[in-house]
Computed example of a mutant assay.
Amino acid sequence: MRDIWKAEWRLTIRQRSSYTFVFLWIFVLSLLFLLERNNPALTGYTNMTGTIANIVLYIVPLFMLVAGSFSIANEMENGQWSLLCTYPLPTIAYWVGKLCGQLTAQSAIFSLSFSLSLLVGTLLGSSLSLKWVLILYIFSISLIWFFLVIGLTIGSFSETRWQALILSVGVWFFLIMIWPTAVISVLSFVPYPMIAPLLKASLFCNPAELLRIVFVVQLDGGAVFGQSYDELISFMQTKALWVLFVGYMFIFSSIMLAFSVWKLERKKRQ
């Protein structure tokens, strides 16, 4: 697993496309921070805060889905996976090594661009709250984790990079772009008393939606979700939230790992 981790880390860091991501984030975040430089400090949930969170929510999942799926699909396509199958390498170790290598590299790339954009914004007069910066950073790193996990699962089910790309874009479009519409459409067929419980349960089916709500609540903007979310928002304002969040992260990743290992083992036997 350690060798897979190191190989994935080196391969990702050496790719020129990785540094395109750095420049993209520096440009986007610096621009948003500069737009707010004449306003009070970014401390709570404001229009600008929501804009920054939405941009992160749109870009990070797509990049991570493509990066994660290509990580495995590329080896399927060029025959390297068949070569690896001849070694005594457990499938779980292979998948976890891929995840750790991608997570390390992508987190380092984002952290570099995020810190540089904060430096640019601060030097040019933006007033940034430490709490706001930390919450936005944790929100972004969590998105990187969840969507790398999903991306690696997509790669496990793909035979070529083209197939991985199509599946990645499809999953991104469903989970990010049309998720609220899809949930509302499905809930329109259930009895009214069941709508609120099912609406809350649906949050755990989409990590992006759950992270978005946690981000807003931590910035004291929970009132925007309405009365039906009052109990959930009250819970999210307690320290128990982080215990639940870590548990959710572990369970979600374990489920994705189980599906991926099952598919990869089938490919080995074929």
Score class of each variant (00 low, 15 high):
48 M>D: 09
118 L>C: 14
269 R>V: 09
55 I>L: 14
72 I>M: 12
36 E>T: 08
81 W>E: 02
107 S>E: 07
245 F>P: 03
214 V>Y: 02
270 Q>E: 13
154 I>T: 03
214 V>Q: 06
269 R>T: 11
114 F>V: 00
170 G>E: 08
27 F>Y: 14
209 E>P: 06
156 S>N: 06
72 I>S: 04
129 S>E: 08
88 P>W: 09
124 L>V: 07
199 L>Q: 14
244 L>K: 03
70 F>V: 03
136 L>P: 06
114 F>C: 04
246 V>H: 08
60 V>W: 03
192 Y>A: 14
174 F>K: 11
21 F>V: 10
8 E>F: 01
200 K>E: 13
115 S>C: 13
64 M>A: 10
39 N>Q: 15
123 L>P: 05
90 P>G: 12
249 M>R: 06
193 P>K: 09
46 T>Y: 07
65 L>K: 02
53 A>E: 10
173 F>Q: 07
128 L>M: 15
205 C>P: 02
270 Q>C: 10
50 G>E: 07
68 G>F: 04
206 N>M: 09
85 C>N: 10
135 I>E: 00
232 L>H: 04
41 A>D: 00
201 A>S: 12
136 L>S: 10
105 A>K: 01
234 S>Y: 09
136 L>N: 06
223 A>Q: 14
202 S>Q: 08
84 L>T: 04
54 N>I: 02
33 F>N: 03
258 A>L: 14
102 Q>Y: 03
208 A>H: 00
116 L>Y: 04
98 K>Q: 10
153 T>D: 10
230 D>W: 05
167 L>D: 01
120 V>P: 02
12 T>F: 07
11 L>S: 11
172 W>I: 01
104 T>C: 11
216 V>I: 15
105 A>V: 07
54 N>P: 05
177 M>T: 13
44 G>F: 03
117 S>R: 01
103 L>C: 08
244 L>R: 06
228 S>V: 08
267 K>N: 10
223 A>F: 13
64 M>I: 03
2 R>S: 11
48 M>A: 14
31 L>K: 07
232 L>A: 11
53 A>S: 14
192 Y>H: 12
34 L>N: 09
67 A>L: 08
80 Q>T: 15
124 L>C: 10
102 Q>S: 15
190 V>F: 14
84 L>P: 00
122 T>Y: 12
5 W>A: 06
101 G>H: 01
149 V>E: 01
190 V>A: 11
233 I>G: 00
100 C>L: 15
225 F>E: 07
250 F>A: 15
82 S>T: 08
71 S>F: 01
58 Y>C: 04
62 L>I: 12
211 L>S: 06
225 F>T: 03
12 T>L: 05
29 L>K: 01
79 G>K: 08
31 L>E: 05
70 F>R: 00
265 E>W: 05
